[in-house]
Amino acid sequence: MSFFQSLAAVLTPAGLLWTIIIIGIATFLHELAHYALARWQGVAVKSFSVGMGPVVLRRGWRGTEWRLSALPIGGYVEIDGMAPEPGPDGGARPPQRGFALLPAWGKIAVLLAGPLMNLLLAILLMTVTFTAQGVPAPDRARIESVVANSAAQKLGLRAGDVITAIDGRDLPPTVTVAGRDAPGWEAVRDTLTRAGRHVFTVERGGQSTDLAFDWTPTVNGQRQLLGIRYGPDVVPTTLPAAFATSWRVTAQAVPQVVQSFAGLFKRFLTLDISRDENVSGPIGTAEIVSQAARVSPWALVQVATLLNLSLAFFNLIPIPGLDGGRILLVLVGALRGRPLSFAQEQAINLAGFAFVMLLMVFVVVRDVSRFF
């Protein structure tokens, strides 16, 4: 199978369209937040582009040229006083107006606005999802599907069953699995690593049933599977509770996101292009969106939530060239009592931008390599 045939097998037209829409909205709101905080402080914004590359359509409004560009990925705002200005000798010189004249807190507000917008959008989407579908119950494991002719089916487990206790003990809110803290419903996985007789207490149709079975995790070196797909049960909730849960879930996601990006940087530095499920490039993202589009609109909302969270955290990484890197330079200047010299800042930003571009190329190469 050729590369393009393999690509067509995992991507769908609907998935590609939804990928463009989801990324487009996330990027537009990110840049709109930068724009709004700059204008609020009286700084002009020369241009605002939806998309990248050659400009297809442009129109002036309120002192800004609004552009629609050919490539439906990303976007940008050109804030006055953020980029170097042409000097009298034809070279570049530090900007002398606009953003450059803002106090440190004003610059940080402009730079922080974009990632915060993505973070707030993710929390809003989570709140809507939890309000409509309920919040996850960490101490209840709902069986989503049962494999035909599997051990689970022979045991009598069915899709929709909720496991509330294992071996006579209620599932706890949290459990330690493989040396990490996990929600209690993951105790199912931990139980299936231990041989012996086990009992699942299953809630079905408002009644509880005990299902006992003998389990052997491995046979002749082969790992045995019970044959169920499961996750947390969900319980109805109110809008305020859904909002509070969204903030809590976001806070709990921070260590996992940091670990994922740390893994990406490690793979980049060692040129390890093996697939990593935690970080996806453009093709991997489009593949995930294509799969979600086949499932339900709520699956697409979940993908949009994760994408906005990833954009928020990625842009806050203190690498020059990203919002977090620019914020770091502003803070360094504030702590020193004077900003870095123009030459120093240019050199740091250039190195940071080159690193980010190489990282992007690495992610794309790793994304494409799995089709060969």
Rank of each mutant, 00 (worst) to 15 (best):
G231K: 10
D89Y: 09
P297L: 10
F261M: 07
M1P: 09
S2V: 05
W61N: 06
V368I: 15
V368T: 13
P103T: 04
A70M: 15
G75C: 00
L11R: 02
V234N: 09
T250K: 05
L120M: 13
N349Q: 01
L316F: 10
V332Q: 01
D139S: 12
L335A: 15
R194S: 14
F353D: 00
G42L: 02
M82C: 02
P240T: 06
P172N: 10
W66D: 07
T285M: 13
V135E: 13
G98L: 02
G60Y: 04
S290V: 12
L306Y: 11
V364A: 06
R366E: 05
S341R: 02
R39D: 07
W105N: 02
L358S: 13
F362S: 04
V368A: 10
G284N: 05
G206M: 09
L225N: 14
A14E: 12
P13Q: 08
L328M: 11
A137M: 14
I21S: 07
A8G: 08
A312S: 06
A343G: 03
I288G: 06
G231L: 10
H198F: 11
V77H: 08
L316V: 01
W247L: 15
A104T: 00
L29T: 01
L309M: 08
G134C: 09
L350V: 02
L311H: 08
S150P: 05
V363T: 02
D181G: 11
E85V: 00
F372W: 14
Y76Q: 00
V147E: 15
G263A: 11
S208N: 13
F314Y: 05
R197T: 15
S296F: 13
V43L: 03
L192M: 01
I25Y: 02
I79R: 03
R142Y: 08
F313R: 03
Q344G: 14
T193L: 14
A165V: 10
R169A: 15
A347Q: 03
A100R: 05
E144S: 12
A304I: 03
F313Y: 06
S369F: 10
W61E: 08
Q41E: 03
G91K: 04
P236G: 08
L322H: 01
A195H: 02
S310L: 07
L316Q: 01
G42T: 03
A92Q: 14
T201E: 12
F99M: 04
Q153V: 05
A244G: 14
P255V: 00
F372E: 11
E144D: 09
R336M: 04
E186H: 11
R58D: 11
N220A: 15
S69F: 04
K266Q: 14
G231S: 11
G352Y: 02
V257H: 13
T27A: 07
A343E: 14
R194C: 06
P217E: 13
P138W: 10
L322N: 01
R158K: 13
T64A: 07
K107V: 02
M82D: 02
L101K: 03
F362P: 00
R204K: 08
S280Q: 12
G263K: 01
F213A: 10
D190K: 15
D190A: 15
F243T: 13
G91P: 01
